[in-house]
Amino acid sequence: MLTIGCHLSAAKGFLAMGKQAIQIGANTFQFFTRNPRGGKAKAIDPQDVSEFLLLAEQNGISSILAHAPYTLNACSADPKVRDFAMRVMADDLERMEHVPGSCYNFHPGSHTGQGVDTAIDQIVEQLNQILKPEQTTTVLLEAMSGKGTEVGKTFEELRRILDRVSLSEKMGVCLDTCHIHAAGYDIVDRLDEVLEEFDRVVGLKHLRAIHLNDSMNPLGSHKDRHEKIGQGSLGLKAFERIINHPSLCRLPFYLETPNELEGYAEEIRLLRELYHPGE
């Protein structure tokens, strides 16, 4: 079965997101842990979580993905910004233990002129301080498009971070189709080769989630502009190949396309029709 969902608003809690997912034909979803442009998080309601977990079990909802706010930058030149990232991520991971076995995705950050080497040192230092042996949440590094001074634009940069995290079993990677296309990885015409390169450099065993987005910009643009499925430079055929690829088809897919719920429901319906692994 295709595990697919979209980005939902967490404003009304886990139960509301679960009901919305079911409503649009999804069996997973992604959400921001707090305001994507801010730092304050809504208090966890234990009853809401309990009711959601029951709903999820009854309706086959699995592999939910929390997304860190965009304001996190673990490798900023400003120590106050790095401290904010540390405190927010630590709090997020503690809160995620209310929904055991989930994933938590974050952007590695932008080095703001310090250089990639210093940035990786700072990201690794933060992860090594925050990750705990007892946590059930897997933390995912998101592959980036390479705009500005972003870290994580190449598979090699992701691997350099993973290699130095002490609790490496708590880590994974999320590939975003728009991002890696913009970063120069040709997943339209050379999907097999790109995945072989990822496996050689990072290891497919570390790949835990896919952000499924078309791109407004061409290959190698280094611009992060998402488009609706089939309406951008990747095209519908590329997504059919991606969701059915033997190395990817059992992973959870999360839509971050410019849509409201009705549009997400249509994309989910379309992608389910295109899903035929093993044929």
Rank of each mutant, 00 (worst) to 15 (best):
T136G: 13
E273P: 00
S166Y: 14
V165D: 08
H222V: 00
I268R: 02
S50E: 15
R159Q: 15
Q122I: 01
G203S: 13
T71S: 13
D45Q: 10
D48Y: 07
Q129E: 15
L204E: 12
L234W: 02
G172R: 02
Q30C: 13
R208K: 15
S110V: 01
I44Q: 08
R225M: 10
H226S: 06
R241L: 08
P277D: 13
I130Q: 10
V99R: 04
D199M: 08
L261N: 13
R37Y: 11
G230W: 08
L53Y: 07
Y275I: 00
G235N: 06
A265K: 14
R269W: 09
A209W: 02
R200P: 03
F253Y: 10
M89Y: 04
P252E: 14
D78S: 07
H222A: 11
M96H: 09
S63C: 10
E260V: 00
V99T: 11
V165K: 06
L270H: 03
H98I: 00
L55I: 04
E134C: 08
H67R: 03
A16G: 05
Q47R: 13
I24E: 04
D186F: 11
N213D: 15
M86V: 00
E150T: 01
A74P: 03
H222T: 04
A85Y: 02
M96F: 13
K80G: 06
C103H: 11
E197N: 12
P277R: 09
C174G: 04
G278C: 10
E51T: 03
S76T: 05
R225G: 09
I229F: 11
G38V: 07
A56K: 06
C6V: 00
T138D: 14
F253W: 05
T112M: 14
A209M: 05
R250K: 15
F84W: 11
E97V: 01
L219N: 12
L212I: 14
Y264D: 15
R95T: 08
H206P: 00
L158E: 06
P246W: 05
S166M: 12
E169M: 03
L140A: 05
M216Q: 15
P277Y: 13
G115Y: 04
P252V: 08
S145L: 00
V116L: 11
N35D: 14
L204D: 12
V124K: 11
T177H: 06
S50N: 13
S102M: 12
E279K: 09
L207Y: 02
V201A: 08
L55T: 03
Y264V: 00
A11T: 10
Q129A: 14
L255A: 07
I268V: 06
L65S: 09
